[in-house]
């Protein structure tokens, strides 16, 4: 087996250390060594967006990064968005309110992507929303609930000054 490289990064505010070959993807590190199984793998080639996480605040595909590249970085996964165990992030709340999910497999990637999208575009038009979330695939919802949820989250986050 190839060399194991020591890894250390901040995941959802906590220091996570591990070991992995250079080829270990960030997604696999997060799932297997940082207990972030909300990072889903829908394609492993960068198209579906299920594996989206924030790296130093920016939404990225964790299947297209090697864990060693994120050494020292700050990672936020879907598990790290809600402020506490009883409260949902406004985007998560909106997905629930608007039926933005069915099987839920695409949901973590969408939630992280939408949170990042709204950060950069606090007041998007419907057209902007549809293009903004087009980097994530959902096979269940037909996107109706997801678009509605993004609209709702935008309004809530603007209202509370969260973006």
């Amino acid at each position: 087996m190839a060399d194991q490289i020591p890894l250390s990064m901040t995941v959802n505010g906590q220091t996570r250390r591990g070991l992995g070959e250079a080829r270990l993807t960030l997604a696999d590190f997060l799932r297997e060594q940082a207990h972030c199984t909300g990072v889903h793998l829908g394609c492993e080639h960068g198209v579906c967006g299920s594996c989206t996480v924030l790296m130093d605040g920016e939404a990225v595909r964790s299947c297209l990064l090697f864990a060693v590249q994120a050494d020292g970085a700050g990672i936020t996964t879907v598990e790290g968005l809600a402020p506490d165990d009883e409260t949902l992030h406004p985007v998560q709340e909106a997905f629930r309110d608007c039926h933005g999910l069915q099987c839920g497999f695409c949901t973590p990637g969408f939630v992280v992507s939408v949170a990042a999208f709204l950060e950069a575009n606090p007041d998007p038009s419907d057209e902007e929303i549809r293009h903004g979330i087009s980097g994530n695939l959902c096979r269940c919802t037909g996107y109706q609930g997801i678009v509605a949820a993004t609209r709702q989250a935008a309004a809530v986050m603007k209202g509370s000054g969260q973006s």
């Binding site: 297997e32 972030c36 199984t37 998560q92 629930r96 497999f105």
Partner: peptide, 23 residues
């Protein structure tokens, strides 16, 4: 009624358990 889904709190926070999550 459009009752909000009971499965959602775990799914929107990444705490669903799909087969690949079984170790």
């Amino acid at each position: 009624q459009s009752v909000k889904r009971l499965e959602d709190p775990r799914l929107v926070t990444g705490h669903g358990r799909y087969v690949d999550d079984i170790v």
